[in-house]
Design a protein around this nucleic acid. Structure first.
Lengths: 114, 114
DNA sequence: GACGTGTATTCCTTGACGGGCATATAACTG
DNA sequence: CAGTTATATGCCCGTCAAGGAATACACGTC
């Protein structure tokens, strides 16, 4: 379960969509097929990649296979991010945080060019 | 600067290595070439991808180009992780409870239907 | 302007990936 | 056992990304 497998699994947008879909609740392959708009074989192949990356677990319910998200590998991503968090905290500090939280602040947008 | 560009930029192990290298301090292309063990053209191509993903900024020092990490896009990854953090906190919480105070099988299976 | 250094770009080849189609496999139904 | 549903796999093909070699470009020096 190297990082490489995890990254390459999540590199694909369809697979990220599937992972996001499973965030809510486990789903059968059929449900996933409908949601992601791919053919069933393609979806199954993506699910295989996610399975081998450890991102999803599968349980059998009659003929159905119900896929559930296993968030543990994503925690590895979080760990990867860890050394960078310091950096962007520092950056925000250096830049000044007057423009980092003004999504809708028309009255006074100070032109902080630099 | 879509998520797709960011993900595909970071999907490559060499590029992640470069990004990690730049975490310490900015580096010239020559330094990066030596560190990542690729040829100079390949390294430049990877740097181009990182540049177009907004992950690095480049400044010129005579003939040298000095690349510096811009951690802001990585914050987008952090934002992507956000909805998952709850999940693994919940998992760890449940696991911790079981390991901590579950010698047998406490009747504590609350359905996560929220 | 000629040369050397440092970096970017182009061309080409190769290998991996994704998609669809057809088909195999497994499980329930009657 | 035949038929149906639900999913996985194999095959083929188009596309794309990565790597190397050669080359072009930019900058500084003499």
């Amino acid at each position: 379960m190297s990082d490489a497998v995890l990254w390459s699994a999540l590199a694909d947008p369809h697979r990220r969509a599937i992972v996001a879909l499973l965030r809510d609740r486990p789903r059968s392959v059929g449900e996933i097929v409908e949601s992601c708009g791919l053919s069933q074989p393609s979806t199954s192949k993506h699910l295989k990649v996610l399975r081998e990356a450890g991102l999803v677990r599968v349980s059998q319910d009659a003929q159905r296979r119900v896929y559930a998200l296993d968030p543990a590998p994503i925690a590895a991503l979080d760990a990867w991010l860890e050394p960078y968090r310091r950096l962007w905290n520092r950056s925000l500090d250096a830049l000044g945080r007057r423009l980092d939280e003004a999504p809708d602040d028309p009255p006074h947008p100070p032109p902080q060019k630099d």
